[in-house]
């Protein structure tokens, strides 16, 4: 028996009122709007970074031309409410839910929203059976959309969405250390592996890009950590000073590589690098790197109790 006055070992769940009141229709409508906005409007932090990059390129250069087209594209997509990029990518949903929230119902609502957004042209038909080659036509199928649920002790549901195109996904990589070309199991080895990824990715993942890096973990958790880094704001500072230093060095060095926007040559190769670290088993040392293109489609919402959108997050 617990001593009187001692805190209970497990905090009792705080059941939120939204569990009972959220309607499927309202939730689905919110998710369609989240998809529409994510596909057609870049978040402010990314737009600011693209603008700054344009200022860094020599007038009349191919790099300046590329960034000028990119900026015009950002404006057009927003005005026309049409996809920034025709590759509307993998649909990655990160969902924080209160204790007791029905995640299965959310999953169904997300699938319905994805189908509706596809029919309206906010999403391309992007879900292909890997064995038969058949396109499901509605972006729903095994692994599509990709939902990552987490419980939290807030009373509301938070939904973050990334649309990650195949061109940039293809140039992500997992490195293992030690490696004779990059170095040992230390920050030097990590930094050199990341810079090799930048070199290999050139031109193919539409640059200037943004890297998410997961140091450690296993082959799944390391890459999951890398992708989750992309949920951070581009202009945030990593609270870990060692990782903050690594992020800054990678961006500075990548931007001295001369790869430039679209691999045309130029001053801006990366708009950002965000790194996280996980513990690893003694035998493994993975550096997992995910590359995000300039068309960095990420948005998020806090949902109101009725399923409507209470707040935009980016």
């Amino acid at each position: 028996m617990e001593a009187a006055g001692a805190a209970p070992l497990v905090e009792p769940p705080r059941r939120s009122t939204m569990l009972a009141t959220m309607s499927d229709a309202a939730l689905q409508a919110s998710l369609v709007e989240l998809i529409r906005r994510t596909s057609t409007q870049l978040p402010d932090d990314v737009v600011r970074a693209v603008r700054a990059a344009r200022g860094a390129e020599a007038a009349g250069s191919n790099a300046a031309y590329a960034l000028e087209v990119i900026e015009r594209n950002i404006g057009l997509a927003c005005d026309k409410s049409q996809p920034l990029c025709q590759d509307t990518g993998s649909i990655l949903l990160y969902v924080n839910t209160p204790v007791g929230y029905d995640q299965i119902a959310f999953h169904h609502a997300a699938e319905a929203a994805v189908r509706a957004a596809t029919a309206r042209g906010y999403l391309r038909q992007n879900s292909v059976d890997s064995i038969t080659g058949a396109n499901s036509g509605d972006n729903v199928g095994p692994g599509c959309p990709d939902l990552h649920f987490h419980q939290w002790r807030q009373p509301h549901v938070e939904v973050k969405l990334m649309l990650k195109g195949g061109g940039c996904e293809n140039v992500g990589a997992t490195y293992t250390l030690p490696n004779p070309s990059f170095g040992g199991r230390d920050l030097k080895g990590v930094e050199n592996a990341i810079l090799d990824c930048v070199l290999q990715a050139q031109g193919q993942g539409c640059g200037p890009g943004i890297l998410g890096v997961g140091i450690g973990g296993d082959r799944v958790t390391g890459m999951a950590c890398a992708k989750a880094q992309l949920l951070r704001l581009l202009d945030d500072a990593n609270p870990d000073p060692v990782l903050a230093g690594l992020e800054q060095r990678v961006v500075a060095k990548a931007n001295q590589s001369g790869i430039g926007p679209m691999g045309f040559g130029g001053a801006t190769t990366l708009l950002g690098c965000k790194a996280g670290a996980l513990n690893r088993v003694p035998a493994s040392f993975f550096v997992s790197i995910t590359y995000m293109c300039w068309a960095f489609r990420r948005q998020g919402v806090d949902l109101a109790a009725d399923g409507g959108i209470a707040r935009w997050l980016y």
Binding site: V69, I70, P83, C85, N135
Partner: peptide, 29 residues
Amino acid sequence: HAIGGAAQVCAERITRVDGVDWMDLGSPE
């Protein structure tokens, strides 16, 4: 080389869609 990701700048210059073949490959292909 077209500008990657600039799907609206490109689409703006597509004035007509006159047909499609091999739709059995799925729309993107």
